[in-house]
Design a protein around this nucleic acid. Structure first.
Length: 277
DNA sequence: TGACCCCTGGCC
DNA sequence: GGCCAGGGGTCA
């Protein structure tokens, strides 16, 4: 589930749950989530207090006192959840942090694609996948920089925007959503974008992320499927259903091995010629 | 840059 | 039973 909006909501939640409390116990049984790190390393969070949580794209860096840190990436199915100590934990919990306030915070991840990495903050920051991330689109995107990055790639817009080094935080859902809002065909090459189209894209990305976050904060699950099988999104996972703008059936194609959804009418392959007069 | 891999759950 | 899935990493 998690792309930037979900991760930002998770970051805020986690920060509010952990701040001002001491960690009285931490444990994480050996699992893929820890990669090569030992469960003991995670347990050493005991006694620490959270200072703050940084986020770049889908990556969170939890910073504790003493320069200790924890990287959390939610993968496809990761989620932090809180419960009262003594309450039955959910299934597929891969790590647990017990707090001085009577709560426990669990990291649940059925599919084990997520990541929990312990270390000194400065050392974690230097991890290639973390330090190599492109700019985060919130609060704003530098349009010049994005334009330059798109001019440099030979890939389609869809694939370029999925690349976390170009822009950190968009995934399969919000790339489709943003391209729809920007009225850009996902198959177009990054190099083909005019500066005006990049500006439109920048605006569209901001809009789709903010839209998703406002929805998330209302506590409704975002993948909520409405009556009739429709969903919250403009195009994502809506193949064959009418475009919410023009009623044309939404198309699904595969790019880079992943589904892309778009409206063939609203997102023409070539920009509409300026009307002649 | 593309193909393939890692895992499990949910859906058809 | 088979297929699909929103993540990243690695390899050629």
């Amino acid at each position: 589930m998690p792309e930037l909006p979900e991760v930002e909501i998770a970051r805020r939640q986690l920060e509010s749950w952990l701040s001002g409390r001491r960690i009285v116990a931490a444990r994480a049984p050996k699992s893929r989530v820890l990669r090569t790190q030992s469960p003991l390393r995670f347990a050493q969070l005991k006694g620490r207090r959270l200072q703050e949580i940084d986020r770049v794209g889908k990556w969170m860096l939890l910073k504790f006192d003493g320069g200790e840190g924890l990287i959390s990436h939610l993968g496809m199915t990761g989620k932090w959840i809180r419960r009262r100590k003594g309450e039955q934990p959910a299934s597929h919990v891969r790590a647990t942090i017990e707090l001085s306030d009577g709560h426990a915070v669990d990291y649940r991840d059925p599919r084990l694609f997520g990541l929990l990495l312990r270390g000194k903050v400065e050392q974690l920051r230097r991890l290639p996948s973390f330090s190599g991330l492109g700019p985060d689109p919130l609060p704003g995107i530098d349009a010049d920089r994005l334009h330059a990055a798109l001019k440099r790639t030979r890939r389609s817009l869809k694939e370029a925007l999925m690349d976390q080094r170009v822009l950190a935080g968009l995934g399969n859902i919000y790339v489709s959503e943003s391209l729809h809002r920007a009225a850009l065909d996902p198959r177009r090459l990054g190099t083909s974008l005019s500066r005006a189209e990049t500006d439109r894209l920048v605006e569209a990305i901001g809009d789709s992320l903010r839209h998703a976050m406002s929805e998330e904060e209302s506590d409704e699950p975002i993948t909520y499927v409405e009556e009739g099988g429709d969903n919250f999104f403009l195009v994502y996972d809506r193949a064959g259903q009418p475009c919410k703008t023009c009623r044309t059936p939404i198309a699904r194609i595969v790019q880079g091995g992943r589904s892309t959804y778009y409206c063939p009418r609203c997102q023409p392959r070539r920009p509409a010629k300026a009307a002649r007069r």
